[in-house]
Amino acid sequence: MDRMHFGEHSSTQFNEALESIRNNLMEMGGLVEKQVVDALQALLHADSDLAQKVLDTEDKVDKLEMLIDEECTRVLALRQPAASDLRLIIAVTKAVSDLERIGDESAKIARMGQQLAEEGESPRGYVEVRHIGNHVRNMLRDTLDAFARFDAKKALAVAAEDNEVDLEYRSAMRSLVTFMMEDPRSITRVLNIIWSLRALERIGDHARNIGEQVIYLVEGKDVRHITVDEIEAKLKK
């Protein structure tokens, strides 16, 4: 972690460019985190206004994604970064697209919230949404925190949590499918909850992806597409 001195280049312009990229990434992370929290609230309380707020934020998130990508392209073209600088730029460009996707998933949840507000609440599934939602929200917060502090350990913990979320998602699916079989009239409304759970599960995956980028940034090791145990083994090498 002590190697990550991004503010000590001989070129102050380079320092400023990297600083700006990191600031914009954190701003985008903050916006997306808020989107997830608001989308969950909108869904749980069938709050159409709050859902609309989530949808309105999308535009801002998209613009930040493009801005950060442009800044990264400029650094690549003008500075030919190497070593930790290069890994920062690569990690940021990947993290940014994951963040944007998290924003999209939040918007899906918000739209489900609006539909439930119109069609009436689902008879089941809110407990699961609240539980998995909180879990995923913490993962996103931790992964952004890990990025800000260049903390590979914390990023690894996020990856481990994603496995739990996947288990919880599957178990929630099973119980909701059983419920729909028993009460077919509820299918439309329960499906809205199922789509939302699916979106939450995807958010967890994206948070894990960002965590993997943090590990790449800090340790210089590519830990995508392997299990948590394998990541741990790779980091010990």
């Binding site: 002590d2 190697r3 001195h5 000590e8 280049h9 001989s10 070129s11 380079f14 500075r79 970064p81 190497a82 070593a83 930790s84 600088d85």
Partner: peptide, 11 residues
């Protein structure tokens, strides 16, 4: 660390 510092243009 010295290699890192040189490669990334810190001195």
């Amino acid at each position: 660390d010295l290699t890192e510092a040189y490669i990334t243009g810190r001195f």
